[in-house]
Computed example of a mutant assay.
Amino acid sequence: MYNYGNALEYIAPPIFAPIVTIEYPIDNTTYIINVTALNYTTSGSSPQSCWYSLDSGATNNTLTCGNNVTGLVSVEGANTWIVYANESEGDIGSSSTTFYKDTLPPIINLTTPTNNTHTDVIQNFTATFVDGGGTDNATLYIYNSSDDLVFSQFNSFIGSPTSTELGIEYNLSIDDTYTWFYNATDIYDETGGSQIFTIIW
C-alpha cells in the first residue's frame, strides 16, 4: 500500500508460479523394479490446476493438486516424468525427474563366427552386449557334440558399459561339431544368455 498525497493506492503483491518438487522417483537413479508412483509437493502460490507427463511432456494427464499418482507403468531404460502446476494468473511451475528402469538381463547377440560356420582356423568368438544399467561380466561356453564342455572363459568388463563387444579366441583343433554361446550378468546380478550357434571343425 502506497500513500500518494492524501490518496492511498493498494499494490497487490506479485504472484509467482507454484514451486513443484518431485520426491519420487529420484532423479538420476536406476531402479530394478517397475516404478509405479509419482510423489510430489507444491509450495508458494496455491495451484489452481495440476497435470503430469510420463513422456518428457509429449502428452499430459490431469491430476488433483496435492494428490500423488499411483498405478503407473515405467518403461525399460530412461524415463522422464514431469509435474506441472499453475496459479490463478496462469504462471506455471514444473519439476522433472529422469530415472532409469533396468529389470531385464543383458541383451546378447552373437556376431562371429556366424551360425553353422565350417572352419579349420582359430576363431574369435565375438558377441555384443547391451544393458541399460551396465554389463558387469560375460562368459563364453563351447561344447562338443557329446555335450562336453571343452572351453569356457570368464571376462569382467571395466566400468560396466551399457553397450560393448567382446571377442575371445580359441582353437577348436579337433574335428567335431561344436555349439557356443555367451552368458552375461549386469550390475544388478540379472543374468541372461545368448542364442546358441553351431560351428563345424
Rank of each mutant, 00 (worst) to 15 (best):
L63C: 09
G192M: 05
S146I: 12
T185R: 14
L172M: 02
S95M: 10
N79C: 08
G66C: 11
Y24C: 01
E190K: 15
D102N: 11
E89S: 15
G77F: 03
H118A: 13
N3V: 01
Q153G: 10
I26F: 04
V121N: 09
L38T: 03
K101Y: 07
T70A: 09
Y10C: 07
T179H: 05
T198S: 09
F125G: 09
V121K: 13
N171H: 01
N34F: 07
S194M: 01
A127E: 00
F125N: 08
D131W: 01
G93L: 06
V20F: 04
I22L: 00
I168K: 09
E190Q: 11
S56Q: 12
N144E: 00
S194A: 04
I187P: 11
S46I: 14
L72P: 15
W81T: 02
I26Q: 12
P161S: 04
G77W: 00
V83E: 08
Y10R: 07
S49M: 03
A17R: 09
T135W: 00
N124T: 14
V35S: 06
G77V: 00
N155T: 14
K101M: 15
G90T: 00
T139E: 13
T111G: 10
Y40V: 04
T185M: 11
Y4G: 10
A58N: 15
Y178E: 02
I158E: 15
Y84K: 12
L72N: 05
A138R: 14
I200E: 12
N183A: 13
T126K: 10
L149M: 07
S95T: 03
L166E: 03
S94F: 10
N171T: 06
G132K: 09
L72H: 05
S163E: 14
N39G: 10
I168W: 13
C65V: 08
D131C: 05
F129P: 12
T103W: 02
Y10K: 13
T59F: 00
P14Q: 12
A58Y: 07
T98N: 10
V75F: 03
T59Y: 00
E87L: 01
F181H: 07
Y52V: 06
Q48E: 13
I82S: 02
S152D: 06
A184Q: 06
A127W: 03
S94H: 12
D186V: 11
E23I: 01
N183G: 08
V69C: 11
N86S: 04
P18R: 02
Y31K: 06
D186G: 10
T59R: 10
T36L: 10
N34D: 15
Y170I: 03
N68K: 06
G5W: 00
T103G: 12
A37P: 11
S156V: 14
I33H: 03
V130C: 07
F154I: 05
S46E: 13
I142R: 15
T97L: 02
V73G: 11
I11N: 07
P14V: 12
S194R: 08
V130W: 06
V69P: 07
T59L: 05
